[in-house]
């Protein structure tokens, strides 16, 4: 009786693994092609008002100018891209409730805008506004 049971068990071991490998390869290729390893970050920005009269005009405003040639200025003084956060921090000091307004000239790029927003946030500013202007005065 024991011999009679052994025979089919041995036959089952011969089952081919090839279909399994095929399926696993298909799954592997599917996941390789569909996954994305790009990690995006989020930067929250308040939307600007279309009417620029809503921009605060009083003295408690620091302006970051994004010039069309790629340079940056803080209240009209040229600063390097690396020193932007320090320049803004020097202007606002402890008064983090001061408004930082970012004025983008016509040819400025999004990368500059992102850098300016982050610099203002690094400097501790809680109110960061943005606006676009045609051409900034010297």
């Amino acid at each position: 009786m024991a011999d009679a049971f052994d025979v089919p068990v041995k036959r089952r071991r011969m089952m081919s693994l090839t279909p399994l490998i095929d399926v696993v390869f298909q799954l592997l290729i599917f996941f390789m092609l569909t996954t994305s390893f790009l990690q995006t970050q989020a930067l929250s920005v308040v939307t600007p008002a279309a009417d620029q009269k809503e921009l605060p005009e009083d003295a408690r405003v620091v302006e970051i100018w994004l010039m069309g040639d790629g340079s940056l200025r803080v209240d009209g003084d040229p600063v390097s891209s690396a020193g932007l956060a320090d320049a803004v921090r020097a202007r606002i000091g402890e008064r983090t409730d001061m408004t930082v307004t970012i004025l983008a000239e016509r040819d400025s790029r999004t990368q500059q805008l992102v850098r300016a927003v982050e610099a203002a946030r690094e400097a501790g500013a809680t109110n960061v506004g943005t606006a676009r202007v045609e051409r900034l005065g010297k």
């Binding site: 790009l38 990690q39 995006t40 970050q41 989020a42 930067l43 929250s44 920005v45 308040v46 939307t47 600007p48 008002a49 279309a50 994004l66 983008a104 016509r106 040819d107 400025s108 790029r109 999004t110 990368q111 500059q112 805008l113 992102v114 927003v117 943005t130 606006a131 676009r132």
Partner: peptide
């Protein structure tokens, strides 16, 4: 990253007009 900042700001102004107070700019690490 090379898009004109003016386009992004114009779009954000349009969003303000549509009632959106805050947007999220997506960046890369």
């Amino acid at each position: 990253q090379a898009a004109p900042a003016e386009s992004v700001l114009t779009l954000m102004e349009g969003l303000r007009g549509a009632g959106v107070q805050q947007v999220t700019l997506l960046t890369e690490r």
